[in-house]
Simulated assay, not measured.
Amino acid sequence: MDRKLNVVVIGAGAVGLGVGCGLATRGVGLHIIANREGQRRALLEEGISRSGLFGDLHAPPGSFDVSTSIDSLATERADVWLVCVKATESERLAQTLGAVWQKLDHSPAVVLCQNGWGNAETFSRFLPSDRVFNARVITGFERMGETHVRITAHADAIHIGSLYGAKTEELRGLSDAIQAGGVPCALSESIEKDLWAKVLYNGLLNPLGALVGVPYGALGERKETRAIMESIAEETFRVMHVAGYSSHWDSPSEYLDTFYEQLLPPTAEHQSSMLQDLHAGRPTEIDPLCGAICTLAEKHGIEAPLNRALHTLIRVAEQRH
C-alpha cells in the first residue's frame, strides 16, 4: 500500500484553502497554517468549502489539521510545504523556514504558489535550491469568508516544476492529488517559460485592472486599454529576452494572439487580486511583477518606462487606500 502523502499548506488565503480543500477530500494528510487564531477556530469548526468552477466541495472538520505556528514544522514529517502566501511575504517567510529547516531530519519539497518573478531566488537564499519548486497558478480563487473559497476563473492547469534542474517526478503524487481534488494540475519541465507566461498575463491585466477598477474582460473591450496592454507586452518581452529568459512565444504578437483568443475570454469576469488588495488596504504584489521587470531592466542597462509607471501608480494607490 502506498504511503499517505503529507502536505503542509502555509497560508490560509484563497489559493491555500482552494487547493487544500481538494487535497483534504482525497485523503492527503493535510496541515494548514493560518495567520490568525480566529480563522484557525473557524476552520476547525466548519471545515473548508469550495464553490464556483469545478463544482461544490466540502472538506469536513477533522479531515485536516490547522495551526498558527510555523515552528510546528520542525517536529512534523511532511513531504511537501506548499507556500500559498503573498509574494510580499516571501523574504520574511523564507527566513523563518530557513531557521526551521536547520532542525529537520528530512528534506520536504517546498512548492511556491506565488505571483511574479524572483520568489524562488528569495527562498533559495535560505533553503537548498534543489528543494525549491514553483507552481504556476493561473486559476482565479477568491476567498468569500474565513472558510469558503470560490473559483471564479480558470485559464490553464496548475504547472509544477523546478528552476534549478531538480527532478519533478517526486511531486507526481502532489500533482495527481490536486488534480483528483478537482483543480487541473500537471508537472512541467518548462516551468521558467510557464512562469514568464504568468508574468505576462498578470502584467497586462493586474495593475491596469486595479487602477481602473474593472474586471479583466473590460480591459480587452476598449482599444485604448488594448493599446496599453500591447505596449506592456512588447516592453516585457524585450526585458525578458535581454535578461536571458524565454516563454512559450517567440514574439509579443504571437503571445497577444493567444492572450486575446484563449487566455482572456475564460477569465473575463475575474477581478485582479491587486484590485482586491487595494480595496482591503493590503500591500499589493506589484514588486514581484512590474518591480521585478524594472529591476531586470536596470540590471541589463535598458529602460522599462511602462512597467515603472505602473509600479509608481500602484504604489500611490496603496497609499490612498
Rank of each mutant, 00 (worst) to 15 (best):
214 V>F: 07
218 A>G: 03
288 P>M: 07
3 R>K: 15
182 G>C: 10
201 Y>F: 15
155 A>M: 11
127 L>V: 01
128 P>D: 02
115 N>M: 10
34 A>Q: 03
8 V>N: 02
80 V>D: 04
255 Y>W: 09
37 E>M: 04
141 F>L: 03
222 R>G: 10
167 K>C: 14
179 Q>N: 11
223 K>Q: 09
295 T>A: 10
265 P>Y: 09
33 I>V: 11
84 C>Q: 06
65 D>M: 14
169 E>Q: 15
266 P>R: 04
281 G>A: 02
141 F>E: 05
295 T>P: 00
114 Q>P: 09
304 A>R: 02
273 S>L: 02
114 Q>H: 13
221 E>R: 02
48 I>S: 01
172 R>W: 07
169 E>R: 15
40 R>P: 01
15 V>C: 12
94 A>R: 07
12 A>F: 12
160 I>F: 07
273 S>A: 05
293 I>P: 05
279 H>R: 13
23 L>F: 04
53 L>F: 00
73 L>H: 09
43 L>C: 03
33 I>D: 00
75 T>H: 13
154 H>F: 08
236 T>R: 02
120 A>E: 13
297 A>M: 03
133 F>E: 02
150 R>P: 03
20 G>V: 09
229 M>T: 02
144 M>P: 00
47 G>L: 04
53 L>P: 02
220 G>F: 03
214 V>D: 04
115 N>F: 15
279 H>C: 09
238 R>N: 09
140 G>A: 01
155 A>I: 12
153 A>M: 07
274 M>C: 05
76 E>V: 13
125 R>T: 06
67 S>V: 12
311 H>Y: 15
175 S>A: 15
231 S>T: 08
299 K>W: 08
245 Y>T: 09
297 A>T: 01
266 P>K: 04
157 A>E: 12
292 A>R: 01
66 V>C: 15
115 N>S: 09
61 P>K: 10
31 H>W: 07
71 D>I: 01
253 S>G: 01
111 V>L: 13
131 R>H: 10
301 G>D: 04
7 V>H: 08
114 Q>D: 12
128 P>R: 05
59 A>C: 06
175 S>H: 08
205 L>R: 04
92 R>M: 14
186 A>T: 11
259 F>M: 11
158 I>F: 12
221 E>W: 01
262 Q>D: 11
213 G>E: 04
32 I>W: 11
236 T>A: 09
11 G>C: 11
28 V>Y: 00
240 M>Y: 00
168 T>I: 09
318 E>Q: 12
34 A>W: 00
261 E>G: 12
247 S>M: 10
311 H>L: 10
157 A>G: 08
166 A>C: 03
141 F>Y: 10
117 W>E: 01
153 A>Y: 03
319 Q>L: 11
56 D>T: 03
213 G>D: 03
154 H>T: 09
173 G>E: 15
176 D>L: 13
288 P>V: 09
187 L>G: 07
209 G>Q: 07
99 A>W: 05
286 I>E: 05
290 C>D: 10
98 G>K: 04
109 A>W: 12
47 G>Q: 02
308 R>N: 14
58 H>M: 06
299 K>F: 07
167 K>V: 13
155 A>V: 15
171 L>I: 08
156 D>L: 11
141 F>W: 04
204 L>E: 13
89 E>Y: 15
86 K>N: 08
302 I>M: 15
94 A>L: 09
281 G>V: 01
